[in-house]
Nucleic acid binder design. Structure first.
Length: 569
RNA sequence: CGGGCGGUGGCUUAGCCCGGCAAAGCGCCUGCUUUGGGAGCAGGAGACCGGCGGUUCGAAUCCGCCCCGCCCGACCA
């Protein structure tokens, strides 16, 4: 490809609406252009890199025994209504109505398509296991699209679905996929980790996220300083100091706290630490009222709360809920909650004594509140949100919060979909049983952003060979000198014929522009033909990743390029 | 959806407080001069200042409503 013809106009300055480095560089280097929030056009360079990722994923999926199919994006609503996800996905699913008035959706994921498909075709345990995958654009009306390709409303995903006859089989299929995922991310040169995660709307029990470490990322995860624990923030736990305080029990005393209804206001007013206040938060879990108790310096993890309660939907009390219940927002305490409220306390407050908490009246708090004597706890659960510095659940080491981009997520679904959709096979004894399923996603367009985020410097992108749109750029440094142009052209043709993925920068611009663009786009290697070298019969080679420059005789240039590319990461 | 910030030629921005000829750099076109790390000079094209309404003799500027985008948060590959 000649750059004079390539549909790629690089930008000297970052567009104002891009903040993340990967986003800015992908736009500046002419890989992508924004169409609207969370929706991007793939330009030739970006599309080539995206295809490379796709092919890596395909080869590893095929190698792991999965078979590629292609499922529709436009979906009927019925199976979604059966599994409850038509509602559960809510506004995150793009919904439309056809001319006949039927509800349709754009696919955010495809369990509801693949499960009935397999159930209709593979009816016997003899057919199992089977694993089907596709690479297709997905649609989710995200609450907040972010960082360009990192979280789009339209994104390219590889989704695979395994079907097994029993739990052991499902686990084996799962392991095979996890190993394939490791190879995919290794081949993409990603610095990544595997963590325990929350299964969200997909459901199921065991699941893992593959996280690419980045300074900007849509995801927060927790790691132990000793490296023995890592989990997504939504799933992370911590050791709670269970040792009971030996403090003497103080009497329950009301104190006036006029106008002070935030934790900060109250403890400052009373001259105490936030950890001494017992926060009482009202939730509705599948409709039932639940009070959650945590220390004043900790937040509730609603994902963990939902799981602890076995609830599908957990949301905080609205003002209407407060009005209907007669509880006083801002001055809640567990002492006088009605009997129909389930009181859930985070394990970390178990040892605490003499709490400050609300008095259930405006402008009143109490001190000296104690569990057992003054209030009851119906359930002790692990529902606290991990904070920086909490103790590791494995070793007690200090936990740290880091950001990452989730590039893959694997789930052991069990019968989450096969049961409601009545997707069954006949086992050895002739009994109908639901399939044991797994599902496995890789964000392909997201990998493009994650790799850009991890492989760059202040000059631009630094693509690993496996993902670079082209391996090499041949730069003619002096377009006014026919000898230079002729030599560059000749080398370009030769490299092309040898099968290299090479572009020829034959644009009529100054050398500086070409060098800057070559660094910005991030070709792994650059070959520079200029009048300076030509005098001594040489060309210059540069490795983008290390900045290493060498000279090679013109005749030897193609093999020198091949050797240099060998070295490139 | 809540909080914060923003929308002015293709891009980055100034102008907005304090109303009075829409401006600069980059990019683009023409010509000349240049040519190894985003060259120089000269000329040129390109903007109903996000939209609608209001105030005013006069609105990019003031007021109201709406739309769009970015960042933080709640959700996710």
């Amino acid at each position: 490809m000649r750059l004079s013809q390539l549909f790629a106009r690089t930008l000297r300055e970052a567009p104002a609406d891009a903040e993340a480095p990967s986003h800015q560089l992908l736009i500046r280097a002419a890989f992508i252009r924004r169409l609207m929030a969370g929706v991007y056009i793939m330009l030739p360079l970006g599309f080539r890199s995206l295809r490379k990722i796709e092919e890596i994923v395909r080869s590893e999926m095929d190698g792991a025994g999965a078979q590629e199919i292609r499922m529709p994006i436009l979906l009927p609503s019925e199976p979604w209504k059966i599994t409850g996800r038509w509602q559960a996905y809510g506004n995150e699913m793009f919904k439309l109505v056809d001319r006949g008035g039927r509800d349709l959706g754009l696919g955010p994921t495809q369990e509801e398509v693949v499960t009935p498909l397999v159930a209709a075709e593979f009816r016997s345990y003899r057919d199992l296991p089977v694993n089907l995958y596709q690479v297709e654009w997905k649609y989710r009306d995200e609450l907040r699209p972010r960082f360009g390709l990192v979280r789009g409303r339209e994104f390219l995903m590889k989704d695979a679905y395994s079907f097994d006859a029993d739990v052991e089989g499902m686990r084996r299929s799962y392991e095979v996929m996890v190993e394939a995922y490791r190879r995919v991310f290794d081949r993409c040169s990603l610095d990544y980790g595997v963590v325990e995660a929350d299964s969200g709307l997909i459901g199921g029990d065991v699941n893992h996220e593959f996280l690419a470490r980045t300074a900007v990322g849509e995801d927060v995860f927790v790691v132990c300083e000793n490296g023995d624990y890592a989990a997504d923030l939504e799933a992370a736990t911590y050791q709670s100091g269970d040792e009971a305080s030996d403090e003497e029990l103080a009497p329950l005393t009301e104190v006036a706290t006029p106008g002070r209804h935030t934790v900060r206001d109250v403890v400052d007013f009373l001259g105490q630490a936030p950890s001494q206040l017992l926060k009482t938060l009202m939730y509705r879990a599948d409709g039932s009222p639940v009070a959650v108790l945590v220390a004043g310096d900790r937040d509730v993890n609603e994902h963990k709360l939902g799981r602890a309660l076995g609830a599908r939907e957990v949301r905080m009390f609205t003002d209407d809920d407060f009005a209907a219940s007669g509880l006083v927002k801002g001055y809640l305490g567990p002492q006088s909650l009605p009997a129909d409220v389930t009181i859930v306390a985070d394990r970390s407050v178990r040892g605490g004594r003499n709490w400050i908490t609300g008095a259930n009246q405006v402008d009143q708090h109490v001190t000296g509140a104690n569990e057992g004597r003054d209030f009851r706890v119906d359930r002790w659960e692990d529902v606290g949100l991990v904070r920086e510095g909490d103790r590791c659940p494995r070793c007690g080491g200090s936990l740290r919060l880091e950001r990452a981009i989730v590039v893959g997520h694997t789930y052991q679904l069990g019968t989450r979909y096969s049961k409601p959709l009545r997707a069954t096979f006949l086992d050895e004894t002739g009994n109908e049983k639901p399939y044991l399923m797994g599902c496995y996603g890789i964000g392909i367009s997201r990998i493009l952003a994650a790799v850009a985020e991890q492989h760059r410097d202040d000059r631009g992108l630094i693509w690993p060979k496996a993902l670079a749109p082209y391996q090499l750029v041949v730069i003619a440094a002096n377009m006014d000198q026919p000898e230079v142009v002729r030599t560059a052209e000749c080398l370009y043709e030769k490299l092309l014929s040898q099968g290299h993925e090479v572009v020829f920068d034959d644009r009529d611009v100054t050398a500086g522009v070409k060098f800057a663009d070559a660094d910005l786009v991030g070709y792994p290697a650059q070959l520079v033909v200029g009048s300076r070298g030509l005098r001594s019969g040489t060309v210059d080679l540069k490795l983008r990743s290390s900045g290493e420059r060498i000279q090679a005789p013109i005749d030897d240039a193609p093999s020198a390029v091949a050797r240099l590319l060998q070295e490139a990461p």
